[in-house]
């Protein structure tokens, strides 16, 4: 009897581990803000693909640049054609690790501060970055948030926008519910 109980326990724990094995979403949100002057230069992307492995903190983001929506269509066209050259470089991604994943208890409701190390690829240029964010656990569901700045010059993003001032650093906000 004891043997069976142990076996059942083992089986159920392995099932639980399996359920925790990969967190993913295809509809994460990324916001972009490069307002430098009076006119706001903001865009939203609702189709961020994000996968995270809670066991070792590995994390991968991929988004399609043409998925950014501006209020102003001409601004969107400029963003795609002149700045990000999204026909040549359709994707932006981040691949890396959450360095303090051990601090996150995926079964206890709380807000955990995390830091991530990895490579951010925008406009075909790879840059090593370190950024911080939060993982929120609420009734068993995880969500990930991070705000960071991107220096446009680091990614060889240059263009001349007529009329509006574009900031040298763009603010990126990531929000993914798993």
């Amino acid at each position: 009897m004891k043997k069976y109980l142990f076996l059942m326990l083992l089986l159920s724990s392995s099932y639980f581990l399996h359920a925790q094995s990969l967190l993913s979403t295809k509809s994460g949100v990324a916001k972009f803000n490069a307002t430098g002057g009076l006119v706001k230069i903001e865009a939203v992307n609702n189709q961020v693909d994000c996968k995270m492995l809670p066991s070792n903190g590995q994390i991968v983001f991929a988004l399609l640049v043409k998925g950014f929506r501006f209020e102003n269509q001409l601004m969107e066209d400029h963003f795609n054609e002149n700045y990000l050259e999204s026909t040549k470089f359709p994707k932006a991604s981040f691949k890396g690790y959450i360095t303090n994943i051990a601090a996150v208890n995926f079964t206890a409701d709380a807000v955990y501060k995390v830091t991530a190390d990895g490579v951010l690829t925008i406009h075909g240029v790879d840059q090593k970055i370190q950024t911080s964010g939060t993982i929120t656990i609420k009734s068993g569901k995880a969500s990930l948030k991070s705000d960071f700045n991107v220096k446009l010059a680091d990614y060889k993003i240059a263009g001349s926008y007529i009329g509006e001032k574009i900031a040298a650093e763009a603010k990126i906000q990531i929000n993914c519910n798993f």
Partner: peptide
């Protein structure tokens, strides 16, 4: 819809 590329799926927006 508009095809904006491929991540792990083909994405239409």
């Amino acid at each position: 819809g508009v095809c904006i590329g491929f991540t792990s799926d083909v994405v239409i927006t």
